[in-house]
Amino acid sequence: MIPDTAVPLAIAGVSHSYGARQALDDVSFEVLPGRVTMLLGPNGAGKTTLFALITRLFDMTAGSISILGRDLAATGAAALAPLGVVFQQPTLDLDLTVTANLRYSTALHGLAPAEARARIAAELARIGLEARADDKVRALNGGHRRRVEIARALLHRPRLLVLDEPTVGLDLPTRKALVAHLHGLARDHGLAVLWTTHLIDEVEADDALVLLSRGRIVATGRRDEVIAAAGAADLAGAFAALTRATEAA
């Protein structure tokens, strides 16, 4: 039983390297419930590596990651149960229907068929795609596919949702709708959200920020705090100044 007070995601002293190349260096931060934490960083900052470690696609070389108090390295796959994931790369099976894709996910999470059917219907209604339930994913546009992926990540009612650049390739209105949708999930349902991105316009005022550059954390805090710490006029300026300083070091 996971206590309600457990921190959804605690990352402590995580380092990882690919051979001689250091991808992450002593990264530590926490993701809290009811809050969107934006992991910002330019391309090559190590965001996707950190994402792969959180989702246990590979093991880290140093440090620890705990999901709701359960250490990922010690607990193994079972620690992933309260985790919902949206990958940067689309992961839906294009040749299966929307429902078949969602059913596959509920089966992997061990949901009973009747419960799975009810949750799938509810999630599809929530994202406004009930009429497309029996369509093959191939027939959906990019924005709808993303919505289905987010719906899939929520089917087993996770307490922590992690998303790796979920808006890549989407048009501006769809991006804005997704940003609003996910902030609503955090605010209204107490979901902890970790969102990796390099698009600073996706950050809202109350979001917790973690700024990553060349594998190291260069700033944390709310938007205004990060801007003030960098002595910049806005977040774009702070982002540029902080990442430039790391690259020059």
Binding site: A77, L80, A81, F87, Q89, P90, L92, L94
Partner: peptide, 15 residues
């Protein structure tokens, strides 16, 4: 290659 393998490997079950 398409990414859908990740959905399987992410299931909370022993690999």
């Amino acid at each position: 290659e398409m990414g859908s393998m990740r959905v399987l490997l992410l299931a909370p079950l022993p690999r």
